[in-house]
C-alpha cells in the first residue's frame, strides 16, 4: 500500500496482512538487539500539529528499529508560527527528500489533502475526529494476542464514552467490524455522532447494562479540550454513569479484557487504577504500538515497484 489514511481504505485483507506483520515485528522487538536494516536509506518525518506522547514516540521508535532516518516537526518551534501555510510546510519538507509523512492534525481529511502535494507516503496518525488507523491496528492485534484468536467472529466489543469526538472509536468500529466482532457503543446521546444509525453498531446508554455481556471493554478518553458546547451537564455525573469504578468492574465476566487508548483521565472515565484490573491490556496496547507501527512503516516503504524478475527469485 502507498498510504495508510483510514481503515476503510486499508480493507480487510490489508488489515489482516498488517496484523500478521505486527506479530513478526513483535518478535524483532523481543530480540537482544531489536533493530533490523529493512528501511535503511528511507526518511520518515513526523508532522504533528497536535500534541501526542505515545503515537509520536512509538512511530519514531518504530522507524529507528527498522533503520529509517527520522525527522521531527513540531508546530511550536516551526515557521507555522510565522504564518507558513500547511501546503508550503509540506512542500518544503518534501523537498528535503522524505519518503513518508506521519501526520496528525486537528482537521479531518488533512492526510488526503497532503497526499496531493507530495509524492511521499502518508500515514494518518489522527485527523480530527475522523480516523486513527494505527491505533485500531494496535488494538485489534492486542485483542487477538491476549485472547489467542485469529478471527474475532462474534466477539462483543463495547466502546464507552466520548464517541462523538473520537477518531479512535471510528477507526476501531471499522477494524473490529471487518474482523467479525460485534461492536456496541455506550455513551450519553449528546456524545454520539449525528449519523450513528448508519454505523454498523448497536447503541446503549447504560454502561451497567452492557458490562455482563462484554468481552472487550474499551474505555475512551473524555476529550475535555474539545468539550466547549455543554455536551455533558456535569463532569461528576458523566463520571458516575460512564466511568469504570471498582464496583462496576466487578460486573465484568472473568474473561473480559479492558482497554484504553490513553492518555487516561484518572477520576473521570477511569476511577479504578488499571493496575488493579486483572485483565487490563492498557500496557500491552502501548508496547504493541511500536510493533504495529513498524508493520505499517514497512508495508508503506518497502513496497516493490512493478512485478519484476526478482519476484520469482525465491532463494
Amino acid at each position: 500500500m502507498k498510504h495508510l489514511r483510514s481503515i476503510g481504505e486499508l480493507g480487510k485483507e490489508g488489515l489482516e496482512r498488517l496484523l500478521e506483520s505486527t506479530a513478526q515485528m513483535a518478535e524483532i522487538n523481543r530480540r537482544p538487539i531489536p533493530k533490523v536494516p529493512a528501511l535503511r536509506g528511507k526518511t520518515v518525518v513526523s508532522l504533528f500539529f497536535e500534541d501526542s506522547t505515545r503515537t509520536r514516540l512509538s512511530f519514531e521508535t518504530a522507524a529507528k528499529r527498522l533503520s529509517a532516518e527520522t525527522m521531527t516537526f513540531s508546530v511550536s518551534t516551526s515557521s507555522v508560527n510565522k504564518g507558513e501555510s500547511l501546503r508550503d510546510t509540506v512542500e518544503t519538507i518534501s523537498d528535503m527528500g522524505v519518503h513518508a509523512f506521519v501526520v496528525r492534525h486537528k482537521s479531518a481529511g488533512v492526510p488526503w489533502q497532503i497526499s496531493q502535494w507530495t509524492s511521499a507516503s502518508i500515514i494518518n496518525a489522527g485527523d480530527g475526529a475522523h480516523q486513527h488507523p494505527t491505533q485500531a491496528i494496535v488494538d485489534c492485534y492486542t485483542v487477538r494476542e491476549a485472547l489467542g484468536l485469529t478471527a474475532l467472529n462474534g466477539l462483543r466489543v463495547s466502546i464507552v464514552g466520548d464517541i462523538k469526538h473520537s477518531r479512535v472509536a471510528r477507526s476501531n468500529v471499522a477494524a473490529f467490524t471487518l474482523l467479525g466482532a460485534h461492536v456496541t457503543l455506550v455513551a450519553p446521546p449528546t456524545l454520539l455522532p449525528a449519523n450513528i444509525e448508519t454505523w454498523p453498531v448497536k447503541v446503549a446508554h447504560s454502561l451497567d447494562d452492557v458490562m455482563p455481556s462484554t468481552d472487550v471493554l474499551y474505555m475512551l478518553r473524555l476529550q475535555s479540550e474539545r468539550m466547549d458546547q455543554g455536551l455533558i451537564p456535569h463532569l461528576g455525573e458523566y463520571s458516575n454513569r460512564f466511568g469504570l469504578t471498582e464496583t462496576r468492574a466487578q460486573k465484568l465476566q472473568d474473561s473480559a479484557v479492558v482497554m484504553h487508548p490513553g492518555p487516561m483521565n484518572r477520576g473521570v472515565e477511569m476511577h479504578i487504577d488499571p493496575a488493579d484490573l486483572p485483565n487490563s491490556l492498557i500496557h500491552k496496547q502501548v508496547a504493541n504500538g511500536v510493533s504495529a507501527r513498524m508493520a505499517v512503516l514497512f508495508d508503506v516503504l518497502a513496497r516493490g515497484g512493478e512485478l519484476n524478475s526478482l519476484q520469482e527469485e525465491s532463494v
Binding site: 506479530a23 513478526q24 533490523v36 514497512f298 516503504l301 518497502a302 516493490g304 526478482l310
Partner: peptide, 16 residues
C-alpha cells in the same frame, strides 16, 4: 527484514 532486495520486489509475508 535483512534482505538486500527490500523495495525491489513485492512484499512477501514473513514468518516469525
Amino acid at each position: 527484514m535483512h534482505r538486500d532486495d527490500i523495495g525491489l520486489r513485492p512484499i512477501v509475508p514473513g514468518a516469525i
